[in-house]
């Protein structure tokens, strides 16, 4: 068979259609973000200034970022030892956990939040009324499948048994083994899972909205509704945040098979 040396014409057409569809909304957003809020004329950076000088912007961004960090730390503390233990001692349980990790695809955030609000209803105010309590707990659940698939891929690529035995014959305790031997070996997987979690929490709208917490995406929505032109600037900036998080994920993920977690976002 002849191998094509040049790109097929129909491929050009499809790539062009796809390219236009994906770039036009971004260009439109850029164009709006450069218009002056007073006159509606191009081109000024005023809107970006408005966003950067907005106290709520920094405040909600900080809340979302701290929430993301908290979620990442709790998720790592919870899932790394668990998955390590499952791989080492009870590998039969792995398919069960893998099945559990699929549940968030059947129970999307909009359904999950209904259940969570009901389950946690009786809990004390310092938990139920605080983003650090209720939201973080919800986000750890959201993060579970993504953490699991990344970490699982990481643990599968190393020889857990040999590493553990070697470390123990040298007299290391469990905590030392986990911290000094296992963790450095699954660092790439843990980082990939963490970045994914970070991106998800920074963009999560559904649960925050229904549980009435003021996180970064809620702020964006508020600006969208009230301030046309700055909203364009804000949208592009949040694009940039997604890009940075996802690109760092791809960079880390490429090193050691990123796993399927990378493809299913929770932002919609």
């Amino acid at each position: 068979m002849r191998h094509r040396r040049h790109i097929a014409p129909s491929a050009v057409v499809w790539l062009l259609i796809g390219g236009l569809y994906f770039t036009i909304p971004l260009i439109a957003t850029l164009q709006i973000s450069l218009k002056s809020p007073q006159t509606g004329k191009c081109c000024t950076l005023e809107n970006y200034g408005w966003v950067l000088h907005n106290g709520d912007f920094w405040h909600t961004l900080k809340i979302s970022f701290m929430l993301a960090l908290e979620t990442v730390i709790i998720a790592l503390l919870l899932f790394v030892p668990t998955i390590y233990w499952v791989h080492l001692k009870i590998p039969r349980l792995r398919p069960v956990i893998a099945f559990l990790a699929l549940i968030p695809f059947v129970v999307p955030p909009i359904v999950m939040v209904v259940g969570l609000l009901k389950v946690f209803k009786g809990t004390p105010d310092w938990f139920y009324q605080q983003p650090w309590g209720f939201l973080a707990a919800s986000y750890v659940i959201l993060a579970f499948p993504f953490m699991f698939f990344s970490l699982d891929a990481g643990f599968r690529s190393i020889d857990v048994h040999t590493l553990t035995e070697a470390s123990q014959s040298l007299g290391a305790r469990w905590t030392t083994t986990l911290w000094r031997v296992i963790l450095p070996n699954i660092k790439a997987a843990a980082l990939a899972g963490s970045f994914l979690t970070l991106a998800i929490v920074m963009g999560e709208f559904t649960i925050a909205n229904l549980a009435a917490f003021h996180t970064f995406p809620i702020f964006i929505q508020y600006v969208n509704e009230s301030q046309g032109f700055p909203a364009g600037a804000l949208t592009l900036m949040s694009f940039a945040i997604t890009w940075v998080a996802m690109l760092s994920l791809l960079v880390f993920g490429r090193r050691k098979g990123g796993g399927p977690g990378a493809i299913a976002g929770m932002r919609r």
Binding site: P25, T29, N224, T235, T242, G265
Partner: peptide
């Protein structure tokens, strides 16, 4: 990989702008 994870409020605005 990035666009599949992009959605929600910013996406909505991008389409309002378009």
């Amino acid at each position: 990989g990035v666009a599949a994870n992009f959605g929600g409020v910013p996406l909505a605005f991008a389409f309002i702008a378009t």
